[in-house]
Amino acid sequence: MLKKIKKYNLLVMLLVLIIIFGIINPAFLQPSNLLNILTQNSIIGIVSLGMTIVIIIGGIDLSVGSIVAFCGLVLALLLTLNIPLIAALLITVVVGSFFGLINGVLIKKGKIPAFIVTLGLMSAIRGGGLLFSNSKSISIGGSELNSILNTKLFGVSFSALIFIVLSIGLWYLLKKTYWGKYIYAIGGNEKAARFNGIQVSKYSIIVYVISGLMCGIASILLVGSLNSAQPQAGQLYELTAIAAVVIGGASLAGGKGSIFGTFVGVLILGVIQNGLSILNVPSYYQYILVGFIIIVSVLIDKNYNTK
């Protein structure tokens, strides 16, 4: 029951923000703008979904932004080589998952802290991307991909739909399957999980692979929306994603967090950005407000937990 109240809290926070922005500038409330927010945040949203499960097992993945950039470059390169779209997309998500696998194996088999491993990969993959793109962006021209992603179903863009479908999928995995229970168990008490015969390494590595996979998918949306790929793309994605996950009620100590919370957390950040931008507030204030929201949401969460 406490959890439910917490969920309401997040929703209330989101609705209050929407109402405040709406009152100040009615243009904000136009359905097209609200759907816009969903579309614009689908990329960081998908990255945050992967980050959520990583944080639930008590890990962290700082390499997400670099993986997104790298996968984007791979995809753009493949498309300029006229490789069929489906094949290019598949290779892109495989590359993303592969980076996740490296993260997971180094953390669990190499027994190096997640922070260090993913910090290292963040730098190495960024460097790799700059190297193979010669630090230039790769343009794919007017593309099939762009038109597919901009297709709208009932007014919702394809990008946003992918985000929603992935959210539902991961929510199902976490809440309805034993796999999800194991993830929560490992995050809550890794030692006890081991003593109960859960293959901690295996499940943890899978989690990092999923995070990499999500980055691969996010990079597809990124390339689609820019019609090009940049080696410098995705900077600070790791921090935005962590912020969304934490606002969504996860604990960096592991064992806590939910896809629903992250979904709302992403929207809260998106609404702030879009709202302030529409109100023509300089971006400095956005940073201040986001910082404030992160701390307040954790504070509310803490009060409900200790009470």
Binding site: K181, Y184, A185, G188, N189, A192
Partner: peptide, 19 residues
């Protein structure tokens, strides 16, 4: 610190090995 899963419910704690 080694036996229970502090973030899970009574039911999940019981069912963990058989889910």
């Amino acid at each position: 610190s080694e036996g229970i899963f502090p973030n899970l419910s009574v039911e999940d704690n019981l069912l963990l090995n058989v889910i």
